[in-house]
Computed example of a mutant assay.
Amino acid sequence: MEDIEELAASYERKLIEVAEMHGELIEFNERLYRSLMSKDHLIVQMRQELIDLRGPVPGDLSQTSDDPSLSDFETAHRALINVWIPSVFLQGRAANAYHVYQVHSDANVL
């Protein structure tokens, strides 16, 4: 009889430990989820800042397909050319100064 009570008490302690670990895992999962959502929001925000500064990111056609001024035909049958100028350098001095542009481009037919 004493062994059964001891075994029951041991199972009860283990059950309490498992319940506590489960609670900790739930809290940890919630923190991870909030962190992930925060980082996703930051990525969206930084991508929009990049687009605002430099124009559409090469390879991202979603930025041009939502233009309400284009008809369905224009949207479906136009060529899309992305030009991206990531950097500009000033070369030369005084009257001989000029700018050198780094230009990337790609063309896609929609």
Results as ranks from 00 to 15, higher is better:
10 S>D: 14
1 M>H: 03
46 M>H: 03
21 M>H: 15
45 Q>D: 09
10 S>H: 08
3 D>R: 13
40 D>Y: 02
66 D>Q: 15
53 L>T: 04
37 M>Q: 06
13 R>K: 14
9 A>H: 01
75 T>P: 00
73 F>K: 08
18 V>Y: 11
16 I>C: 12
80 L>Y: 03
29 N>H: 13
71 S>Y: 06
59 G>Q: 02
22 H>D: 15
50 L>V: 15
92 G>V: 05
68 P>H: 01
101 Y>V: 06
98 Y>A: 05
103 V>H: 01
24 E>N: 10
12 E>R: 14
25 L>C: 09
86 P>G: 03
40 D>S: 12
16 I>Q: 15
18 V>S: 06
76 A>R: 08
31 R>D: 03
2 E>Y: 04
60 D>C: 08
90 L>S: 11
24 E>T: 09
64 T>P: 00
46 M>L: 09
26 I>S: 09
52 D>A: 13
18 V>R: 07
69 S>H: 03
65 S>I: 15
5 E>G: 03
77 H>P: 00
32 L>M: 14
104 H>Y: 05
14 K>N: 13
85 I>T: 07
70 L>Q: 07
62 S>R: 10
32 L>E: 06
100 V>G: 04
46 M>I: 05
93 R>G: 01
8 A>N: 13
106 D>E: 15
90 L>M: 11
69 S>C: 05
44 V>A: 10
7 L>K: 10
108 N>H: 13
50 L>R: 14
60 D>R: 05
105 S>L: 07
24 E>M: 11
79 A>S: 04
94 A>Q: 14
76 A>E: 08
60 D>S: 13
55 G>E: 00
99 H>M: 05
59 G>E: 09
54 R>S: 15
103 V>A: 02
100 V>D: 02
93 R>A: 13
79 A>C: 07
81 I>C: 04
36 L>W: 08
40 D>N: 11
110 L>V: 14
9 A>E: 07
14 K>P: 02
14 K>H: 02
97 A>Y: 03
33 Y>M: 08
17 E>K: 13
23 G>P: 00
43 I>K: 10
81 I>V: 13
108 N>S: 09
93 R>Q: 12
42 L>Y: 04
87 S>D: 14
38 S>Q: 10
59 G>M: 01
1 M>V: 02
89 F>I: 05
54 R>N: 15
8 A>Q: 08
